[in-house]
Each structure stands twice: as structure tokens, then as C-alpha cells.
Design a protein around this nucleic acid. Sequence first.
DNA 1: ACCTGAACACCGTTCAAGT
DNA 2: ACCTGAACACCGTTCAAGT
Lengths: 192, 192
Amino acid sequence: MAGTGARRMRADARRNRERLLTAADEGFREHGVEASLERIAREAGVSIGTLYAHFPSRQALAAALLRARHDSLFELGDSLPGEWSAIDALATWMRAVAAHAAAYRGLATFLVNALGDEASELHAECARMARITERLVDNARGTIGAKVTAEDVLAVTNAAAWTREQVSSSQADRLLDLALRGLRAVTPEPPL
Amino acid sequence: MAGTGARRMRADARRNRERLLTAADEGFREHGVEASLERIAREAGVSIGTLYAHFPSRQALAAALLRARHDSLFELGDSLPGEWSAIDALATWMRAVAAHAAAYRGLATFLVNALGDEASELHAECARMARITERLVDNARGTIGAKVTAEDVLAVTNAAAWTREQVSSSQADRLLDLALRGLRAVTPEPPL
DNA sequence: ACCTGAACACCGTTCAAGT
DNA sequence: ACCTGAACACCGTTCAAGT
């Protein structure tokens, strides 16, 4: 695996990498995921060439920045099927993903693009999110409408993340609650 | 009103304005609402200074480009309360807005920002969309959940527009259908 | 009344040259 | 093994000077 950590690096390289990540987190938080890379390098006290040496693309930088967050998200997603009811597990997952994908402004769009781009350093993470969603949706079959797909659930979740970025987290929560009510199965089954 | 049309303009100015709008529509369609303005001017065969003379900001350019679309959208919105049931009127409105706000990539985000920015040349249009939404939501009171606000409906609609841009129009339609099911009142009223 | 294009302050990205 | 910074090709925006 590439860039899994700071092992076997020269001490100065290791320090530069750390500084870049700190500056990038600040930059992304302040200006969104499209923040200027030159400014991030400047803020880290490092040349722009060094930034590119460590992170060959904006996706790679974002992936490194999100690694810890992704790890705990996946841990949650894998643990959910055991706990609560299937519908509560799904709801918890959707809320967690929506909160995660709004960590930086523009991140929801960034992640959706990564899911559709196999070359992106974030593609594997996005695919994993999709797989976990599929499992939780399958588990909730019968409780949720028969015509609801995992893609529907992922789309709603990403849309909620976008709402969180653009409007507010409380509005995003309301959107998710609304969607969850729509997800539940009713009889007779209405057309979707 | 500023920039209401092509009246009382010198013939060359009028022609340049038209060329700029054509090039901008192409540029926005191809590269989204953040397309390069210099490229648009170049494509229109006009200097970048001329673009700024006609359209002092990207918002102004977008507003001019969307004027016809907005006019017919508002016409629809004002005519809806007379026709169909209140809930169908609301659903029709939501679908129309979601389709409109996805005319160019990035437009949903652009419009949400304009709603929150009184200085934007698109602010009045966005506020008008919000007012029409409020009226239709009020009309549908009793059919939709008592705790559902016009802001909820607008948020869902914008989120669907974003989904349309980012994923597909069919996925956006499914999101809207899901949300509409969630909007409908049920007894006993569940907490939102 | 309108247009031009240089000017300024920024970008992303690459790559030879250094240590 | 890693870093630097110049180089290139772009941007958005303004404004003096032209017609």
C-alpha cells in the first residue's frame, strides 16, 4: 500500500509530511476541499514541490487527511449489524456517513466524484462505504420499502451531507428524518 | 432594473452581449457554472473587459442566462395553486425546481449561496422561489406532516437538484419520490 | 458609449538542479 | 532520499487608453 504511514522516512521528510497534513486540515476547514495547495505548502513552511512529492494529487492529500475518520467510520459500519434493529442500524449509518461527508465544504461532491473515478485515491474508501450501505439495506429488507435500493439510500445520505455543508447540520438532520420516514414500508406498497 | 434587456444599446454592444450569452451558455453547459470567464470571452470573440462591462459578476452573467428559465418557472409556480390537489401542486413544483437548479453543474450550490447573499444578482430570484414554496406548503397543510416546514421542502428540493447534477436525473427523481412519501402526514404523527 | 488589452495577484503542476 | 524554486500555462478582476 502506498502512503500508509510515516515509517522508514527520513526525519525531515516525516516532519514535513506532518506539517503538510496540519496545514491542509486547516486550509480545508477554512476554504473547503478545493483550498489552494500553494497556500497550504506556504503555510506548512515547505515548497510546493514537496507537497506534490508527498501527495501527488488533491485526492491523495484528502485521503491521507480522512484516513483516521474513514477507519472509525468503517469500524462503526461493520459493527452495526449486531446491534439494534436493522432499521436503526441503517439510520445510524446514514447519519454517520452524512456527518462524515460534510467534514469539509465540498467534500460530498468530492466523494461522489471519487466513487465514479477508479483512478482516485479515494475510490476504495467510497466503494467500501457503498458496500456497507448495501449490507445494511439488505438486512433491513421487509422493514423498508421493497423497491428501495442501496443506491437510493446512498444518494439520500450524500444529499444530506451536501445540505449539511451548504445549509446547516440541523436542516440535514431533518432531511434524513424525512427520508427515513419515506423509506419505511407501507401497505399497500405505493409505487416508487 | 439593471440589465433587463438589449434596448437602447449601440448595435455592436447588443451583438456582443448576445455573443457573450451564447458562449456562456455553452461554457456553463460544458464546464459547469464555474467555467472560465476568460475562455467564455475568448469564445465570444470579445475582450475580457467587455465581458465585465456587460456582466459585472459571475452571478450577473448567470442571472441573465437563467432569466427566461426563471420567468417560466415562476409562472408555473404562480399557476399551480389553482390546479390539482395541494399535494400534487407541491410535488410538481418540487420536481420543476429540482430540474431547473440542475441546468448547469454546480448551479444548486450557486443558488443556495445566492439565497443567503443579499448582494447577489440572483438573490431576488432565489427569494421568490422560497416564497412560492412557502405558499404551496401552506396550501398542503393537513396533507403533509404538521411539523414539516417550507425550509424542509426547499432543502429537499435543492438536495435533489444536487443529486441530479452529480449522479443522475433518475436518481434525483427517486430521492424526490422518497421524500414526498416522508412528507405525507400519518397518524399517529411521528416525531420529526 | 463602448471596447481593448496590459497589469496585477493569484492558481495547479512539473521538473531540473541542488543537498 | 528528499527538497527547492523557477517555469509554464492558466485564472479573476481592474482600469487607463483608445475609438
